[in-house]
Design a protein around this nucleic acid. Sequence first.
RNA 1: GGGCCGCUAGCUCAGCUGGUAGAGCACCGGGCUUUUAACCCGUUGGUCGUGGGUUCGAUCCCCACGCGGCCCA
Length: 489
Amino acid sequence: MSEYERDARRERLGALRESGIEPYPARVGPRTPVAELRAEHDAREAEALEKEPVEAAVAGRVMAHRSFGKLLFVDVVDDGHALQVSGRKQQLDPETFARMRELDIGDFVRVEGVLWRTRSGELTLDTRRLELLGKALRPLPEKWHGLSDVETRFRQRYLDLLVNEDARRIAVVRSRVVSRMRRFLESRDFLEVETPILQPIYGGAAARPFQTHHNALDQDLFLRISDELYLKRLVVGGLNRVYEIGRNFRNEGISRKHNPEFTAMECYQAWADYTDMMELVQALVVEVAHEVHGGLRFSCRGHEVDLSGDWPRIPMRDAILEATDGTLDILADDDWKAHERRLGLDPKPTWAQFVDEVFSERVEPTLVQPCFITQYPKALTPLAKSAPEDERLVERFELFVGGMEVANAFSELNDPDEQRRRFEEQGRAAAEGDDEAHPMDEDYLRALEHGLPPTGGLGVGIDRLVMLLVDAPSLREVILFPHLRPEQS
RNA sequence: GGGCCGCUAGCUCAGCUGGUAGAGCACCGGGCUUUUAACCCGUUGGUCGUGGGUUCGAUCCCCACGCGGCCCA
């Protein structure tokens, strides 16, 4: 940073204080939000404003400054809406005019004035009174090219939000998506709940956890990788429809589609199965897409995604058969290691992880249009009910759109003995080297022994859903503060 | 974890075959009453990511490290 510019700003700050002006006042006088003012007067012609003068006051951040000697313009931005403000020497006392000339880009001001229209037709507030609401000591990024350095955009997201319209747009869209999601679930009688983030045993997904420690209890704890097992305990307790929107933490690599902490919506519905969850998630995604796009077609990664109509349901076995030209049947009793070598895939310790790998390598990227992949191998899914047609499969689906998994759902396994066997099987997978195997959870088994009703469960990755809807190339564009290494070593 | 690419003024970027740096915007000074990427004139501003090495001499070549990006794992 140019010490020169910071010195100049600090000097002005000092001069203000010396002349008795508080540069960081506590209170803001009456004001109209710029958006409101524009909505009311944008249509008004110059003559109309002259005949019936409109007095107004606004507050905002100075984002541009153009000076003409005896006339100057500043652009004042209030919550993303800009208003041009003019200052005329002839209209103002010399001190106010001088202070207006000395405004820095980034300063907060409150301006009282009269609306007029310039020759070029711009609605402008001509200053009668000027108050400084906050002095900025550092310059903003440059106005032509804005801020494009990705690292700065993420480390100093506030700068990104101030100068890149898209950053602001995405933040707003994300908030609307979550809000719409809540309204949707409420309309279907789901109860919003909160469950522990610090858990004595992690579970509900295949992932490695972050570990921490409670000092007073001298207890090791995990940051949740999912809230599934707690939400299902609530269904055991008779809360038939529950959901939680919250952060999960997975101790794995960072990529375009992965951040160590991410936001998920999970919901559980008694008396439902995974097909009910298909209906639910489709209605939800459709509603949210309407909220964002006003329709069901939008572009994503250069493709047109169309959410209308029925979304196909494709058993995983068929999807993999098709993607391997009929050469790999995951239900055939083959030597899977041979297939792994033949397909040139990275060696995996277990059959389940091999299937997962084939799927994510060969099938997932091709699933641009919305599509339910169903009937997952049991070994991949220790918490879902067996499929009646084949003991090796479970009643599960994942929703894919834009080549990405956005939702995951099961008919929840509620047979406590079967659940115990599945956990034991996971223990064997762990022994074979699967570091994402599900741990044994006796407390959860006890809850199941009390009785979980037939229940459908659904998880939706909110970051990915937003990424899809705004066609962002990376999760980091939709997470305001994505994880980065520390700046200084 | 591996490969490739990047890191130069506050921001966006140039910088040839090795001879210690430039532009635009911002900033500072001056001019200007209709601009909105205002304009005109004149300045200022650099640990060239960090640390080593090679060399008479390194932003440039070599090595290590840091941060970031893309791809792979």
